[in-house]
Design a binder for these strands. Structure first.
Length: 305
DNA sequence: TTCCAGGAGAGAG
DNA sequence: CTCTCTCATGGA
């Protein structure tokens, strides 16, 4: 297990971190809030700027907010998913030579447990959109509606609360570049403000119920609901099927055109209960490996289990 | 200029 | 139930 040490109320060391890679974790498209400066990452998490640096098995973390060691530590361990036994999860989904390549290349990439409202809003914005623009829109929303924070020269803003966006109105949200998604975002904010969607209740639900509840929101379909379940609620059986996952499974595993339904059914049966982690490794591998589609024969050479 | 991006909703069949 | 078209936006 990890040991921790705090030097003052802004800074924390987490030592003996095993099976963790900060770069792969923060640059794998699950969070849109992190910026790399030199060899450290700056981002806003739950109302504070965090600066995180990894040196082998030691994480150095600074916060813009004072806090006591135990809550600081437990919050970060949970956010970075360090309480899970990654080796066990990856061993369970390492069922063929294709995904084994992805696992070996990005070993230590973890699924974050991100703040719920910001994750809902972020993935509403993500629909039919690209990473760079999603990041830009979220930054503009934070700049316009959030609270300003600083940490040794780095400036960023909190993500606006549902109340603030509900009060702001659709037109003001639209000015941040959301396009037609402005009304979805505004509606979601209102649903939370007026109590139709209760976030603390959502956190207690099992996967299927949470997904169905999220899909009641306008602008939240299966894929976005699965992203929220996987990147915020910790449901590792969630499988978001985006254009990349669709492409990967059609090319590598099914070798034919397939609907999202078919892909879900196949993948959950093939990879098992941790399919969400399998998905993240396949997704990031394809995004970073231009010739990802050249080795479909590796998937056919099924191994072990 | 057209195409595409961590898609969803409305409408048709 | 499944298929198709449309929805803003900006970078390639």
């Amino acid at each position: 297990m990890n040991t921790t040490k705090i030097t003052n109320r802004h800074q924390l060391y987490i030592q003996d971190v095993s099976d963790f890679n900060l770069k792969w974790t923060l640059e794998s498209g699950q969070s849109f809030r992190w910026n790399r400066m030199e060899d450290a990452y700056y981002g806003v998490v739950e109302g504070q700027i965090l600066k995180i640096h990894q040196n082998h098995v030691t994480l150095t973390i600074e916060s813009s907010k004072e806090q006591d060691e135990s809550s600081f530590t437990s919050h970060l361990i949970h956010y970075l998913d360090l309480e899970r036994e990654l080796a066990t999860i990856l061993s369970a989904v390492n069922v063929d030579a294709y995904i084994e390549r992805a696992i070996n290349k990005f070993w230590g990439m973890r699924l974050l447990n991100q703040e719920l409202w910001e994750t809902i809003a972020s993935f509403i914005i993500s629909q039919n959109n690209n990473m760079a623009r999603i990041r830009g829109i979220i930054r503009k929303l934070a700049e316009r509606f959030g609270e300003k924070l600083t940490l040794d020269g780095y400036v960023d803003y909190t993500f606006p609360t549902p109340q603030i966006l509900a009060d702001a109105g659709i037109d003001e949200i639209f000015l941040c570049g959301t396009g037609y998604r402005a009304k979805y975002l505004w509606n979601a904010a209102n649903n939370i403000v007026n109590g139709e969607l209760v976030l603390d209740v959502l956190k207690q639900m099992k996967y299927e119920d949470a997904k169905q509840e999220l899909m009641q929101l306008e602008g939240v379909g299966e894929k976005v609901a699965d992203c929220i379940c996987l990147f915020s609620l910790g449901h590792l059986t969630a499988l978001p099927v985006d254009v990349w996952i669709k492409r990967i499974f059609e090319r590598i595993y099914l070798q034919k055109r397939a609907s999202s339904r078919e892909i879900q059914e196949f993948a959950k049966n093939y990879f098992g209960q941790y399919v969400g982690y399998a998905q993240q490794y396949l997704f990031h591998y394809a995004q970073n490996q231009p010739n990802w589609a050249d080795d479909e024969h590796l998937a056919l050479s099924k191994k072990k289990k």
